[in-house]
């Protein structure tokens, strides 16, 4: 299968970037987007050209390192699937495919398809963790967590922090990401103790880089961890709760 790739090339964070067109003649339907990039890079290196910089790590959809925009869709055209699992089966021989970085003012391009997602790290550093002395593991059944809470916390903890939700949002909002963290940590006994403090810290950090949510719902379409739109409501819920409660927990 022959694919014409338009790929974003940008040498420095200051830009300017441009699209470069290359052709890969031996793409196969079972290849992933990242494997297509590998193939393209082999070709570029063979021809003495600079390979395209892109991020990837586990290639099994659990690390959150990869993430490119494919034909305008963060991660790719398939819903709720990370770039490493997006296959080329939907592409026809000779079709064009456009690859660009995840787009957001909060994610400046470092080089080519690699973006700086430290704006999300700053949110986690501000409060997306447990900062109390949790002691040693408690005895079994001494600290009961309802089954439903455990399930919901686990669903929200599935977020891999890839940033696709931000890139999918026409407002560059990070509500799905922040909401999933807030919900996950507020449901469990250790995380719950800093619930109010965490909400204030994470929200105030979020305000500085990310936009407001207009409920477009684009984030939940691309999220490879299937975080539901409910997470978005959790952002305001935790914000309101911490505002009226004015306590750390």
């Amino acid at each position: 299968m022959r694919l014409v790739i338009e790929v974003w090339r940008q040498d420095t964070p200051q830009g300017p970037g441009r699209y470069e067109t290359h052709t890969v003649d031996d793409a196969t339907p079972e290849m992933s987007i990242l494997e297509l990039l590998d193939r393209l890079n082999d070709q570029l290196v063979e021809n003495g050209l600079e390979p395209v910089a892109f991020e990837s790590d586990c290639r099994e959809g659990i690390c959150g390192a990869c993430g490119v925009t494919v034909d305008g869709n963060p991660h790719g055209p398939q819903r709720n699937t990370p770039s490493c699992h997006q296959r080329l089966a939907g592409y026809a021989d000779g079709q064009r495919i456009r690859l660009e970085p995840l787009r957001s003012a909060a994610f400046p391009v470092i080089r080519d398809l690699v973006v700086d997602r430290s704006a999300m790290d700053r949110i986690i550093a501000a409060g997306g963790h447990v900062a109390i002395d949790a002691g040693t593991a408690p005895d079994a059944n001494s600290l009961l967590v309802p089954h439903e809470s455990a399930e919901r916390a686990l669903d929200m903890a599935a977020c891999i922090g890839c940033g696709a939700c931000v890139a999918a949002c026409p407002n560059g909002a990070a509500h799905l990401f922040v909401g999933s963290k807030l919900t996950h940590l507020s449901l469990l006994p250790t995380g719950r103790q800093e619930r109010g403090k965490r909400a204030r810290a994470m929200l105030s950090e979020m305000e500085q880089d990310f936009g407001p949510c207009s409920l477009y719902g684009e984030c939940a379409r691309v999220c490879p961890a299937h975080i539901p739109l409910t997470a978005i409501a959790a952002v305001n819920k935790e914000g309101l709760r911490s505002f009226f409660r004015q306590k750390d927990d």
């Binding site: 660009e100 787009r103 003012a105 949002c169 026409p170 407002n171 560059g172 936009g211 407001p212 207009s214």
Partner: peptide, 9 residues
């Protein structure tokens, strides 16, 4: 704010 956070693309 939404426009600023989204950026130029």
């Amino acid at each position: 704010r939404g426009r600023a956070s989204r950026g130029t693309h």
